[in-house]
Design a binder for these strands. Structure first.
Lengths: 103, 103
DNA sequence: TCGATTGTTCGATAATACTCGAACATTGGC
DNA sequence: GCCAATGTTCGAGTATTATCGAACAATCGA
């Protein structure tokens, strides 16, 4: 059986933890792609980055409460926790997604 | 004479750098206090934190473009770069200041 | 000029984070 | 069962960051 994937309650997530998760260009790009591509597998669009590195970034985002991972076959489908984030950090996603990709 | 204090142009600041500067509870608190107290000296309200540590945090915020420091006597007065930030990262300050102090 | 105030800089230490290869685990198809 | 696909975990190496005392610099008032 697949082990359960643990996600924090957003109520327990502090703002500085969110900021830390977003303080990396790759993770910002992941968030932007996840916004455009619901149920995004972990390695799509990131062929040049080793999968262990990607796994690390996904875990940081998950532990910060930004994304939710659901096992689906051999894959994990990643989705932004849009609604929950809006309740806990209103305006956060809108702000991040409004920004252009960092040069 | 006082050496000039260097501040980045906000156009050169990238989002992940802003996020990194805000990924620390002390610095978030500094920003919130700076919003309420324009021209805030570096060590006011932070008696329990060593001044060298505070100096470090102020520098991080300054280099990320979040605050501007102006020499004033033996002090440095710190102010949020509110207007410039709103142009470069619209909604950022509003978002941060909307959040409660992290528990 | 002396002393108090304010803050920076330097150096050391500890902690944390990023990257990535290798090995392992899980799943689904054949 | 075997294999390919997907992703995690582990460990190591590197880099960045946080913290803080001590020494230094600048300013102002007496």
């Amino acid at each position: 059986m697949a082990r359960p994937i643990s996600h924090p309650k957003l109520q327990d997530v502090q703002l500085h933890e969110i900021m830390h998760a977003l303080a990396d260009p790759v993770r910002l790009e992941i968030v932007r792609l996840a916004a455009r591509h619901p149920e995004l597998p972990c390695n799509r669009f990131f062929d040049e980055i080793p999968k262990s590195t990607m796994s690390h970034h996904w875990r940081v985002l998950r532990q910060a409460g930004l994304i939710r991972q659901v096992g689906h076959g051999a894959s994990r489908l990643n989705s932004l926790r849009t609604k929950e984030l809006e309740e806990r950090f209103p305006g956060l996603l809108a702000f991040v997604l409004r920004q252009r990709k960092t040069r």
